[in-house]
Amino acid sequence: MQLIGILPWSAELGRLDVCAEVSMMSSYNAMPHVGHFHAVLHLFGYLETHPSRKIVMDSAYMALTNIPKSEWYEFYPWAKEVLPPDMPEALGGAVKIVMLVDA
Rank of each mutant, 00 (worst) to 15 (best):
H36E: 04
L43N: 11
E12T: 03
G45N: 11
M24E: 15
A20L: 12
L47P: 09
G45T: 12
E12V: 00
H50W: 02
V40N: 02
A11V: 03
M57W: 10
T49Q: 15
L47Q: 10
S59N: 09
L16K: 13
N29C: 06
A39E: 13
R15F: 00
L16Q: 12
S52K: 10
N29S: 13
N29K: 08
V22F: 04
N29Q: 11
M57E: 09
E48V: 04
V18A: 03
S59R: 09
A11T: 08
H42T: 09
G35R: 06
H42W: 09
A39D: 11
V40C: 02
A30L: 08
H33T: 07
M24R: 15
E12R: 05
L41V: 06
M57C: 03
Y61S: 07
A20K: 14
H42F: 04
H38I: 01
F37G: 09
S23Y: 08
S59L: 02
Y46C: 10
M25D: 09
L43Q: 14
Y28H: 15
I55A: 05
H50D: 12
Y61C: 03
V34S: 08
E48S: 13
V18Q: 08
K54L: 01
S59D: 11
M25T: 06
M57S: 04
H42Y: 07
S52G: 01
P51M: 04
S59G: 05
G45M: 03
S26P: 06
Y28P: 08
H38P: 02
R53N: 08
